[in-house]
């Protein structure tokens, strides 16, 4: 490979672009704001935040949220419902799967502000008291997880897969559960668990 970067190369252009934007600023030695200055509560811009009223696992919540907040971050960082996981934050893994009005969606790509009046179900809302949802029990029975990190998304997705009726065969379950990545590789057992829970309906 030559010493010179090819024309149109990424880094050179990037370098030029960022150097240009620094004109007149020249290597600002930025200082850390003293902690005392930091406001204890999030400073929120009223124009770019707003109110949303929704039900989560049967509980009514009325909240002020930054418009940028995803449903996933709302659950995890504001409401302490950390069962729903962030695996990629880009709709490419399914770890954040929750039900919105009964349909499975990626919480990471759902803006919380859009959920006014919505009914959200997370993994924390599946069991009936101490009685596990049949699919939760099936996951335990068939060892359909190892590390457990994708498991909440798998189970929520699985309940929807069953409700949608996509459980006619192992192949059908495999396809309709392919929106949930399991890196530990428990797929065959996830299929068995979904199949078992579907049969109990």
């Amino acid at each position: 490979m030559s010493e010179e970067l090819p024309k149109g190369s990424v880094s050179r252009r990037t370098l030029l672009a960022s150097t240009a934007s620094l004109t007149g600023v020249a290597a600002t030695n930025t200082l850390v704001a003293p902690a005392a200055v930091a406001s204890p509560a999030p400073a929120v811009d009223a124009a770019t935040s707003g109110q949303v009223s929704l039900r989560i696992n049967g509980d009514q919540h009325t909240l002020t949220v930054d418009n940028r907040t995803s449903l996933l971050d709302l659950l995890r960082e504001q409401l302490g419902l950390t069962g729903t996981k962030k695996g990629c934050d880009a709709g490419a893994c399914g770890a954040c799967t929750v039900l919105v009005d009964g349909r499975r969606v990626n919480g990471c790509l759902t803006l919380a502000r859009r959920l006014d009046g919505a009914e959200v179900t997370t993994v924390e809302g599946l069991a009936d008291g101490d009685e596990l949802h049949p699919l939760q029990q099936a996951f335990i029975d068939h060892d359909a997880f190892q590390c457990g990190f994708c498991t909440p998304g798998q189970i929520v997705s699985g309940t929807a897969c069953i409700a949608e009726g996509h459980t006619g065969s192992a192949a059908e379950i495999r396809e309709w559960m392919s929106g949930n990545i399991c890196r530990c590789g428990a797929y065959t057992k996830i299929v068995t668990a979904v199949h078992q829970a579907a049969g109990r309906r």
Partner: peptide, 9 residues
């Protein structure tokens, strides 16, 4: 296309 979750959205 995509996944069941994304197709729902």
């Amino acid at each position: 296309s995509a996944s069941p979750q994304l197709r729902n959205m």
